[in-house]
Design a protein around this nucleic acid. Structure first.
Lengths: 203, 203
DNA sequence: CTATGATTCAAACGGTCGTTTGAGACGCGT
DNA sequence: ACGCGTCTCAAACGACCGTTTGAATCATAG
């Protein structure tokens, strides 16, 4: 495996992440992706097999990362963690991901898009690769909210997920002001979201 | 104007609404749309001018409807309306829209998709044709929540909008049980959402 | 150096896309 | 019954799609 293969694969993944986020899975063509990645068109089918496989790979890479960080943040909480702490363990890793790489910022939009695409294959993929994280958080939250029924709890977690997805993807109507970076804007969104979600869960 | 023209235009709009919701704006082709509507392919460009114009028309038709109902519901509230009442005026019309027509159910997914597409043209369209509704609700909510700063209030409304869009579009992880219709499922989602949002706004 | 497998490349494949065209069908006032 | 817009239709346009191909290039092991 020459050193260039790794680089080619990676360049494709990052370009794809950005373009899928911007134009959707159907809207971004492999020609756009390979052109942005500065690789040959055929490289996608050579390294990934097909466009669908590329989509899945783009997706899996960051979702695994996000899952790991969320579970790690959850485990690092001590026994007296507050509801806000648990929510932060769920929400902040998504934020950090967007801070550390250009493509990371795109990923949250890819994630939101995956929800929106409503594709059965992606839904199955999500429930297989994301459900265990939700279940872990639900377990911890259940202890913190003993008066809440189990079904009620899942409903509310679902609402938080939805609000988070939209907030992180910057889909909202609130435009960031001049002089405020995209990251600062998202930081604000997360702070608001945590406070909002904590109150909603306690209701 | 023969009686068939109206019917053709309408059939295109409803088929487009359904297919755009299912496959996205880029993912649903005009051939799929016209085939589902049982009209000739060229009818789209004849009646609407282009695919983009059709998208805008699909969008405008229901958004106007939704805006009207929300504002009407808001105006019908008496002076002693609770926070939950105001939220219901915002949320319920979206639900009702999905009850009364097949395509109405698709619309909320189209709406969610419009957020996700992150298209500048659609964003401008949204802020031009939706902003006044948000401002009206914000004004009423500000009276009900005198301790909340204006900026803080807008943040929270944004969060509610996101969670609502997500919930209405049935993107969530919660699968509806057997014996529960899609409408009943959404009813439940709305009830949970109103309670959750009210608490979040009061936080 | 040469043989071998991995990778890149330009080119082409069949198919589908949005859009346009021009001829035909239809409804209707005169 | 005729003429005139309105509408529908099959066909075609060029562009772009995802994918495949086979030769060229490269890195490395023998």
């Amino acid at each position: 495996m020459p050193s260039t293969q790794f680089s080619t694969k990676l360049r494709i993944l990052e370009a794809a992440e950005t373009l899928f986020a911007r134009h959707g899975f159907a809207g971004a063509s492999l020609r756009q992706v390979t052109s942005a990645a500065n690789v040959n068109l055929a490289a996608v089918n050579y390294h990934f097999g097909s466009k669908d496989k590329l989509i899945e790979e783009v997706f899996r890479r960051r979702l695994d990362q996000l899952n790991d960080r969320r579970l790690k943040a959850l485990q690092e909480l001590d026994a007296h963690a507050s509801l806000e702490d648990v929510l932060a363990a769920f929400i902040r890793p998504a934020l950090e991901l967007t801070h550390e790489s250009d493509a990371g910022g795109a990923f949250v939009r890819v994630l939101a898009r995956a929800y929106a695409e409503h594709n059965d294959r992606l839904r199955r993929f999500l429930s297989e690769n994301y459900g265990h994280v939700i279940r872990q958080f639900a377990h911890v939250l259940a202890d913190l909210l003993p008066d809440l029924g189990k079904e009620e709890l899942y409903w509310r977690i679902d609402i938080v997920s939805g609000a988070l997805t939209y907030a992180m993807a910057d889909f909202g109507i609130i435009q960031r002001r001049e002089g405020v970076t995209e990251n600062q804007h998202r930081e604000q969104a997360v702070d608001h979201l945590i406070r909002f979600a904590a109150a909603g869960l306690r209701a």
